[in-house]
Amino acid sequence: MPPPVTIALLVAIAWYLAGRRIGLMSLVGLLFLWNLRLWTPTMQTLVLVTLATLAALAIGIPIGIFSALNRRVWKTVSPFLDMMQTMPSFVYLIPAIPFFGIGPVSAVFATVVFSMPPVIRLTALGIMNVPGELIEASDAFGTSPAQKLFKVQLPLALPTIMAGINQTIMLGLSMVVIASMIGAGGLGREVWRAIQRLDAGSGFQAGIAIVIVAVILDRVTQAMAARARPAPID
């Protein structure tokens, strides 16, 4: 797919999800990246982040839900989350290699592990913080546990869950860059190469490209989170 088409598509998505301001900002940012000749690595990074995030959410959200509904699960999961978040991120690269070898698969694996804690934690927190009175109200009207989850708990926890998704994407992006050490392609590799050659110029170029990608992802997901919040007062 030629870059202009991709840019148009991404800008349209950003515009739709987050409004005109962020749509235009994305347009400028993406054109700039194209101009820097970093288009291909940017797309590689974006794909890695997207894959890793989807995997992290697919595993993390259910774990978060279980943790919220069952105290024992939460007590088991919680220390693991603490550990996962305090462990230096480089460490995750090591066990990935023997399993998946050097390359993008290992990178995605390490990224998933590293970026999962926020979405687990915030999903659980969002559900646990649904006011007891609302849970009582749903019980009083004869809500089954599944109905309670899908009609009450998840919708009310959605803003918090969205904040968790945002965090996960941001952590995923930072990890994808680090994972270039084990052969992930993309902008991380540009940075890694610049370090090896002591080439400050191209290092900054790649760095700025990462910042632009991060800002776009962050703003779009934040706008989605804001949309999930209940309607404000007129």
Binding site: P131, E133, L134, A137, A140, F141, G142, V152, L158, P230
Partner: peptide, 19 residues
């Protein structure tokens, strides 16, 4: 089923779903 058939409940702090 019993709760659905028999009871309607009103709460002190309304307990309306904000969403």
């Amino acid at each position: 089923q019993f709760r659905r058939e028999k009871f309607g409940m009103v709460f002190q702090h309304f307990a309306l779903f904000p969403n």
